[in-house]
Design a protein around this nucleic acid. Sequence first.
DNA 1: TAGGTAAAGGTCAGGGATGGTCAAACCATG
DNA 2: CATGGTTTGACCATCCCTGACCTTTACCTA
Lengths: 160, 160
Amino acid sequence: MTSLSDEIEEFIKRMLEETSGRLEIRRQRLAARFSCAPSQINYVLETRFTTDRGYAVESRRGGSGFIRIIKFSLGGPGRALEFLSDRIGDSVAQREAQALIERLAEDGCLSPREAALMRAAVDREALLVDLPYRDRIRASLLKRMLVAVLSCPPARGEQE
Amino acid sequence: MTSLSDEIEEFIKRMLEETSGRLEIRRQRLAARFSCAPSQINYVLETRFTTDRGYAVESRRGGSGFIRIIKFSLGGPGRALEFLSDRIGDSVAQREAQALIERLAEDGCLSPREAALMRAAVDREALLVDLPYRDRIRASLLKRMLVAVLSCPPARGEQE
DNA sequence: TAGGTAAAGGTCAGGGATGGTCAAACCATG
DNA sequence: CATGGTTTGACCATCCCTGACCTTTACCTA
Protein backbone atom coordinates (compact mmCIF):
# COMPACT_ATOMS: atom_id res chain seq x y z
CA MET A 1 0.00 0.00 0.00
CA THR A 2 2.85 2.34 0.58
CA SER A 3 4.38 3.62 -2.61
CA LEU A 4 7.95 4.51 -3.26
CA SER A 5 6.95 8.15 -3.14
CA ASP A 6 5.57 7.62 0.35
CA GLU A 7 8.81 6.08 1.50
CA ILE A 8 10.89 8.88 0.11
CA GLU A 9 8.56 11.39 1.73
CA GLU A 10 8.96 9.69 5.09
CA PHE A 11 12.69 9.52 4.71
CA ILE A 12 12.97 13.22 3.97
CA LYS A 13 10.69 14.12 6.86
CA ARG A 14 12.76 12.09 9.29
CA MET A 15 15.89 13.78 8.04
CA LEU A 16 14.23 17.16 8.44
CA GLU A 17 13.41 16.43 12.06
CA GLU A 18 16.98 15.50 12.80
CA THR A 19 18.25 18.66 11.19
CA SER A 20 15.72 21.03 12.73
CA GLY A 21 13.83 21.87 9.60
CA ARG A 22 16.59 22.58 7.13
CA LEU A 23 18.19 20.07 4.85
CA GLU A 24 20.33 19.78 1.75
CA ILE A 25 20.38 16.70 -0.39
CA ARG A 26 21.88 15.42 -3.61
CA ARG A 27 19.18 14.38 -6.01
CA GLN A 28 21.22 11.63 -7.56
CA ARG A 29 22.38 10.21 -4.28
CA LEU A 30 18.86 10.03 -2.93
CA ALA A 31 17.61 8.46 -6.14
CA ALA A 32 20.37 5.88 -5.95
CA ARG A 33 19.46 5.07 -2.36
CA PHE A 34 15.93 4.23 -3.41
CA SER A 35 16.94 2.75 -6.76
CA CYS A 36 14.72 5.02 -8.76
CA ALA A 37 14.92 7.62 -11.48
CA PRO A 38 16.25 10.99 -10.32
CA SER A 39 13.11 12.69 -11.57
CA GLN A 40 11.21 10.66 -9.00
CA ILE A 41 12.73 12.92 -6.38
CA ASN A 42 11.28 15.94 -8.13
CA TYR A 43 7.92 14.25 -8.22
CA VAL A 44 7.99 13.69 -4.49
CA LEU A 45 9.05 17.25 -3.84
CA GLU A 46 6.38 18.68 -6.12
CA THR A 47 3.56 16.65 -4.69
CA ARG A 48 4.46 16.53 -1.00
CA PHE A 49 6.72 19.38 -0.08
CA THR A 50 4.63 22.22 -1.41
CA THR A 51 4.22 25.73 -0.10
CA ASP A 52 0.72 24.87 1.07
CA ARG A 53 2.16 22.26 3.32
CA GLY A 54 4.71 24.63 4.73
CA TYR A 55 7.84 23.73 2.85
CA ALA A 56 10.20 25.69 0.65
CA VAL A 57 12.44 23.98 -1.86
CA GLU A 58 15.41 25.64 -3.49
CA SER A 59 18.11 24.12 -5.63
CA ARG A 60 21.21 24.72 -7.64
CA ARG A 61 22.36 22.85 -10.70
CA GLY A 62 25.78 22.15 -11.97
CA GLY A 63 28.88 21.02 -10.13
CA SER A 64 28.27 20.81 -6.38
CA GLY A 65 24.59 21.28 -6.98
CA PHE A 66 22.03 20.51 -4.28
CA ILE A 67 18.40 20.60 -3.31
CA ARG A 68 17.57 22.46 -0.12
CA ILE A 69 14.36 21.75 1.73
CA ILE A 70 13.13 24.03 4.49
CA LYS A 71 10.17 23.46 6.78
CA PHE A 72 8.37 26.57 7.93
CA SER A 73 6.53 26.84 11.17
CA LEU A 74 3.38 28.92 11.39
CA GLY A 75 4.64 30.62 14.53
CA GLY A 76 1.72 30.15 16.89
CA PRO A 77 -2.06 30.41 16.66
CA GLY A 78 -2.13 34.19 16.33
CA ARG A 79 0.05 34.30 13.29
CA ALA A 80 -1.55 31.20 11.90
CA LEU A 81 -4.92 32.87 11.83
CA GLU A 82 -3.55 35.92 10.10
CA PHE A 83 -1.72 33.79 7.59
CA LEU A 84 -4.67 31.58 6.84
CA SER A 85 -7.34 34.23 6.47
CA ASP A 86 -5.28 35.65 3.62
CA ARG A 87 -5.05 32.32 1.94
CA ILE A 88 -8.62 31.15 2.09
CA GLY A 89 -10.78 32.83 -0.48
CA ASP A 90 -14.45 32.32 -1.22
CA SER A 91 -13.94 28.83 -2.49
CA VAL A 92 -11.74 25.99 -1.26
CA ALA A 93 -11.22 22.49 -2.64
CA GLN A 94 -11.19 19.57 -0.25
CA ARG A 95 -7.51 18.97 -0.86
CA GLU A 96 -6.53 22.47 0.06
CA ALA A 97 -8.63 22.37 3.17
CA GLN A 98 -7.07 19.10 4.26
CA ALA A 99 -3.57 20.38 3.62
CA LEU A 100 -4.26 23.39 5.82
CA ILE A 101 -5.73 21.33 8.62
CA GLU A 102 -2.81 18.91 8.43
CA ARG A 103 -0.38 21.72 8.68
CA LEU A 104 -2.05 23.33 11.65
CA ALA A 105 -2.11 20.00 13.41
CA GLU A 106 1.56 19.34 12.73
CA ASP A 107 2.35 22.77 14.03
CA GLY A 108 0.52 22.07 17.25
CA CYS A 109 -2.19 24.67 16.67
CA LEU A 110 -4.85 21.96 16.66
CA SER A 111 -5.25 18.91 18.86
CA PRO A 112 -5.79 15.58 17.13
CA ARG A 113 -9.45 15.70 18.00
CA GLU A 114 -9.88 19.21 16.71
CA ALA A 115 -8.17 18.22 13.48
CA ALA A 116 -10.38 15.14 13.14
CA LEU A 117 -13.41 17.28 13.72
CA MET A 118 -12.44 19.75 11.04
CA ARG A 119 -11.50 17.05 8.57
CA ALA A 120 -14.94 15.54 8.97
CA ALA A 121 -16.56 18.91 8.39
CA VAL A 122 -14.78 19.74 5.14
CA ASP A 123 -15.28 16.29 3.63
CA ARG A 124 -17.25 16.47 0.42
CA GLU A 125 -19.54 13.72 1.57
CA ALA A 126 -20.62 15.78 4.54
CA LEU A 127 -21.57 18.84 2.54
CA LEU A 128 -24.27 17.22 0.41
CA VAL A 129 -24.39 19.88 -2.30
CA ASP A 130 -22.76 19.95 -5.71
CA LEU A 131 -19.95 22.08 -6.96
CA PRO A 132 -19.42 24.96 -7.15
CA TYR A 133 -21.50 25.68 -4.03
CA ARG A 134 -19.79 22.94 -2.08
CA ASP A 135 -16.42 24.67 -2.32
CA ARG A 136 -17.97 27.93 -1.20
CA ILE A 137 -19.59 26.38 1.83
CA ARG A 138 -16.33 24.66 2.66
CA ALA A 139 -14.46 27.96 2.53
CA SER A 140 -17.03 29.58 4.74
CA LEU A 141 -16.96 26.72 7.23
CA LEU A 142 -13.20 26.56 7.31
CA LYS A 143 -12.77 30.23 8.01
CA ARG A 144 -15.35 30.29 10.73
CA MET A 145 -14.09 27.18 12.39
CA LEU A 146 -10.54 28.47 12.36
CA VAL A 147 -11.49 31.78 13.88
CA ALA A 148 -13.52 30.00 16.52
CA VAL A 149 -10.90 27.50 17.51
CA LEU A 150 -7.76 29.59 17.21
CA SER A 151 -9.15 32.46 19.19
CA CYS A 152 -10.23 30.17 21.97
CA PRO A 153 -7.52 29.50 24.59
CA PRO A 154 -6.11 25.98 24.33
CA ALA A 155 -6.72 23.58 27.15
CA ARG A 156 -3.98 23.16 29.72
CA GLY A 157 -1.36 20.69 28.70
CA GLU A 158 -2.28 21.06 25.04
CA GLN A 159 -0.76 22.85 22.06
CA GLU A 160 2.03 25.32 22.47
CA MET B 1 -31.04 -15.56 0.81
CA THR B 2 -27.62 -14.07 1.14
CA SER B 3 -26.48 -11.97 -1.73
CA LEU B 4 -22.95 -11.48 -2.87
CA SER B 5 -23.01 -8.06 -1.26
CA ASP B 6 -23.88 -9.68 2.05
CA GLU B 7 -20.96 -12.05 1.75
CA ILE B 8 -18.56 -9.26 0.97
CA GLU B 9 -19.92 -7.30 3.90
CA GLU B 10 -19.36 -10.23 6.23
CA PHE B 11 -15.89 -10.78 4.88
CA ILE B 12 -14.89 -7.19 5.46
CA LYS B 13 -16.34 -7.20 8.94
CA ARG B 14 -14.41 -10.32 9.88
CA MET B 15 -11.25 -8.74 8.54
CA LEU B 16 -11.97 -5.62 10.55
CA GLU B 17 -12.26 -7.62 13.75
CA GLU B 18 -8.93 -9.26 13.15
CA THR B 19 -7.27 -5.96 12.50
CA SER B 20 -8.82 -4.05 15.38
CA GLY B 21 -11.03 -1.82 13.34
CA ARG B 22 -8.68 -0.56 10.68
CA LEU B 23 -8.17 -2.13 7.31
CA GLU B 24 -6.71 -1.43 3.91
CA ILE B 25 -7.76 -3.37 0.86
CA ARG B 26 -7.19 -3.46 -2.87
CA ARG B 27 -10.45 -3.06 -4.68
CA GLN B 28 -9.37 -5.24 -7.55
CA ARG B 29 -8.02 -7.98 -5.34
CA LEU B 30 -11.20 -8.14 -3.32
CA ALA B 31 -13.31 -8.14 -6.46
CA ALA B 32 -11.21 -10.95 -7.88
CA ARG B 33 -11.64 -12.96 -4.71
CA PHE B 34 -15.40 -12.80 -5.09
CA SER B 35 -15.32 -12.96 -8.88
CA CYS B 36 -17.33 -9.82 -9.31
CA ALA B 37 -17.03 -6.41 -10.91
CA PRO B 38 -14.78 -4.02 -8.98
CA SER B 39 -17.60 -1.52 -8.72
CA GLN B 40 -19.46 -4.10 -6.67
CA ILE B 41 -17.06 -3.29 -3.87
CA ASN B 42 -18.09 0.34 -4.03
CA TYR B 43 -21.69 -0.67 -3.82
CA VAL B 44 -21.08 -2.67 -0.69
CA LEU B 45 -19.15 0.17 0.89
CA GLU B 46 -21.79 2.74 0.01
CA THR B 47 -24.69 0.73 1.31
CA ARG B 48 -23.17 -0.97 4.34
CA PHE B 49 -20.17 0.94 5.62
CA THR B 50 -21.71 4.36 6.03
CA THR B 51 -20.99 7.03 8.59
CA ASP B 52 -24.32 6.38 10.26
CA ARG B 53 -23.25 2.84 10.93
CA GLY B 54 -19.97 3.97 12.36
CA TYR B 55 -17.57 3.46 9.50
CA ALA B 56 -15.27 5.77 7.61
CA VAL B 57 -13.99 4.94 4.17
CA GLU B 58 -11.05 6.65 2.52
CA SER B 59 -9.22 5.76 -0.63
CA ARG B 60 -6.42 6.61 -3.00
CA ARG B 61 -6.28 5.98 -6.70
CA GLY B 62 -3.33 5.34 -8.91
CA GLY B 63 -0.32 3.14 -8.39
CA SER B 64 -0.36 1.45 -4.99
CA GLY B 65 -3.82 2.79 -4.42
CA PHE B 66 -6.05 1.37 -1.68
CA ILE B 67 -9.34 1.59 0.12
CA ARG B 68 -9.14 2.11 3.86
CA ILE B 69 -12.02 1.18 6.09
CA ILE B 70 -12.15 2.29 9.69
CA LYS B 71 -14.66 1.21 12.27
CA PHE B 72 -15.41 3.72 14.97
CA SER B 73 -16.25 2.49 18.37
CA LEU B 74 -19.76 3.67 18.97
CA GLY B 75 -19.44 3.19 22.68
CA GLY B 76 -17.65 6.47 23.37
CA PRO B 77 -18.11 8.56 26.50
CA GLY B 78 -21.35 7.45 28.04
CA ARG B 79 -22.20 5.67 24.81
CA ALA B 80 -23.27 9.11 23.69
CA LEU B 81 -22.53 8.46 20.09
CA GLU B 82 -24.75 5.48 19.67
CA PHE B 83 -27.57 7.40 21.20
CA LEU B 84 -26.95 10.51 19.15
CA SER B 85 -26.59 9.08 15.71
CA ASP B 86 -30.04 7.59 16.09
CA ARG B 87 -31.42 10.78 17.48
CA ILE B 88 -30.17 13.15 14.80
CA GLY B 89 -32.29 12.71 11.74
CA ASP B 90 -31.78 14.05 8.26
CA SER B 91 -32.54 17.59 9.22
CA VAL B 92 -31.59 19.67 12.25
CA ALA B 93 -32.40 23.25 13.17
CA GLN B 94 -29.64 25.50 14.48
CA ARG B 95 -31.33 25.71 17.85
CA GLU B 96 -31.39 21.94 18.30
CA ALA B 97 -27.81 21.60 17.16
CA GLN B 98 -26.62 24.20 19.61
CA ALA B 99 -28.54 22.65 22.44
CA LEU B 100 -26.95 19.32 21.68
CA ILE B 101 -23.46 20.78 21.58
CA GLU B 102 -24.07 22.62 24.82
CA ARG B 103 -25.24 19.47 26.47
CA LEU B 104 -22.19 17.50 25.38
CA ALA B 105 -19.89 20.28 26.49
CA GLU B 106 -21.50 20.39 29.93
CA ASP B 107 -21.15 16.66 30.22
CA GLY B 108 -17.47 16.98 29.50
CA CYS B 109 -17.64 15.12 26.21
CA LEU B 110 -16.36 18.17 24.36
CA SER B 111 -13.63 20.60 25.31
CA PRO B 112 -14.47 24.31 25.15
CA ARG B 113 -12.52 24.62 21.93
CA GLU B 114 -14.22 21.64 20.35
CA ALA B 115 -17.58 23.04 21.29
CA ALA B 116 -16.66 26.44 19.86
CA LEU B 117 -15.56 24.79 16.68
CA MET B 118 -18.79 22.89 16.29
CA ARG B 119 -20.92 25.87 17.12
CA ALA B 120 -19.19 27.81 14.36
CA ALA B 121 -19.84 25.00 11.92
CA VAL B 122 -23.56 24.66 12.54
CA ASP B 123 -24.20 28.39 12.49
CA ARG B 124 -26.65 29.34 9.77
CA GLU B 125 -24.36 32.11 8.58
CA ALA B 126 -21.66 29.59 7.83
CA LEU B 127 -23.79 27.31 5.72
CA LEU B 128 -24.66 29.81 3.00
CA VAL B 129 -27.63 27.92 1.59
CA ASP B 130 -31.35 28.36 2.18
CA LEU B 131 -33.76 26.13 3.98
CA PRO B 132 -34.56 23.32 3.78
CA TYR B 133 -31.12 22.30 2.49
CA ARG B 134 -29.37 24.15 5.24
CA ASP B 135 -30.92 21.97 7.92
CA ARG B 136 -29.93 18.86 6.02
CA ILE B 137 -26.34 19.92 5.67
CA ARG B 138 -26.28 20.80 9.34
CA ALA B 139 -27.52 17.34 10.27
CA SER B 140 -24.93 15.71 8.08
CA LEU B 141 -22.14 17.87 9.47
CA LEU B 142 -23.22 17.33 13.04
CA LYS B 143 -23.28 13.57 12.76
CA ARG B 144 -19.96 13.36 11.03
CA MET B 145 -18.26 15.72 13.40
CA LEU B 146 -19.61 13.82 16.38
CA VAL B 147 -18.45 10.49 15.05
CA ALA B 148 -15.04 11.93 14.29
CA VAL B 149 -14.50 13.67 17.59
CA LEU B 150 -16.11 11.25 20.00
CA SER B 151 -14.30 8.23 18.68
CA CYS B 152 -10.95 9.97 18.83
CA PRO B 153 -9.32 9.57 22.26
CA PRO B 154 -9.50 12.77 24.31
CA ALA B 155 -6.30 14.58 25.13
CA ARG B 156 -4.74 14.01 28.51
CA GLY B 157 -6.07 16.30 31.19
CA GLU B 158 -9.23 16.85 29.19
CA GLN B 159 -12.77 15.52 29.41
CA GLU B 160 -13.51 12.69 31.74
C1' DT C 1 39.99 35.43 -20.56
C1' DA C 2 37.47 32.31 -23.48
C1' DG C 3 35.89 28.11 -24.37
C1' DG C 4 35.09 23.49 -23.38
C1' DT C 5 33.62 19.71 -20.48
C1' DA C 6 31.75 17.21 -16.78
C1' DA C 7 28.50 17.19 -13.28
C1' DA C 8 24.75 18.43 -11.23
C1' DG C 9 19.48 19.37 -11.34
C1' DG C 10 14.79 20.55 -14.26
C1' DT C 11 10.91 19.55 -17.43
C1' DC C 12 7.60 17.14 -19.66
C1' DA C 13 4.94 13.73 -21.94
C1' DG C 14 3.46 9.16 -21.63
C1' DG C 15 2.38 4.49 -19.93
C1' DG C 16 0.69 1.66 -16.42
C1' DA C 17 -1.91 0.91 -12.22
C1' DT C 18 -5.47 1.97 -9.33
C1' DG C 19 -10.04 3.41 -7.71
C1' DG C 20 -14.76 6.20 -8.89
C1' DT C 21 -19.16 7.05 -11.25
C1' DC C 22 -23.35 6.16 -13.39
C1' DA C 23 -26.89 4.20 -15.98
C1' DA C 24 -28.73 0.03 -17.51
C1' DA C 25 -29.64 -4.79 -16.89
C1' DC C 26 -30.82 -8.23 -13.64
C1' DC C 27 -33.43 -10.48 -10.22
C1' DA C 28 -35.85 -11.61 -5.86
C1' DT C 29 -39.90 -10.51 -3.36
C1' DG C 30 -44.26 -9.09 -2.15
C1' DC D 1 -45.97 -7.43 -12.44
C1' DA D 2 -44.17 -3.52 -9.82
C1' DT D 3 -40.67 -2.34 -6.79
C1' DG D 4 -36.30 -1.95 -4.93
C1' DG D 5 -32.05 -3.89 -3.91
C1' DT D 6 -27.99 -6.12 -6.81
C1' DT D 7 -24.63 -6.56 -10.31
C1' DT D 8 -22.23 -5.30 -14.29
C1' DG D 9 -19.59 -2.74 -17.82
C1' DA D 10 -18.15 1.32 -20.14
C1' DC D 11 -15.88 5.32 -19.33
C1' DC D 12 -13.52 8.67 -16.21
C1' DA D 13 -10.06 10.66 -12.78
C1' DT D 14 -5.99 10.27 -10.26
C1' DC D 15 -1.48 8.83 -8.97
C1' DC D 16 3.04 6.84 -9.68
C1' DC D 17 7.21 6.34 -12.09
C1' DT D 18 10.42 6.58 -15.92
C1' DG D 19 13.28 8.13 -19.76
C1' DA D 20 14.61 11.36 -23.13
C1' DC D 21 16.09 15.78 -23.54
C1' DC D 22 17.22 20.54 -21.59
C1' DT D 23 19.54 24.09 -18.48
C1' DT D 24 22.82 25.63 -15.24
C1' DT D 25 27.19 25.68 -12.77
C1' DA D 26 32.01 24.73 -11.45
C1' DC D 27 36.29 24.06 -13.02
C1' DC D 28 40.03 23.13 -16.07
C1' DT D 29 42.90 24.26 -19.95
C1' DA D 30 44.81 26.78 -23.57
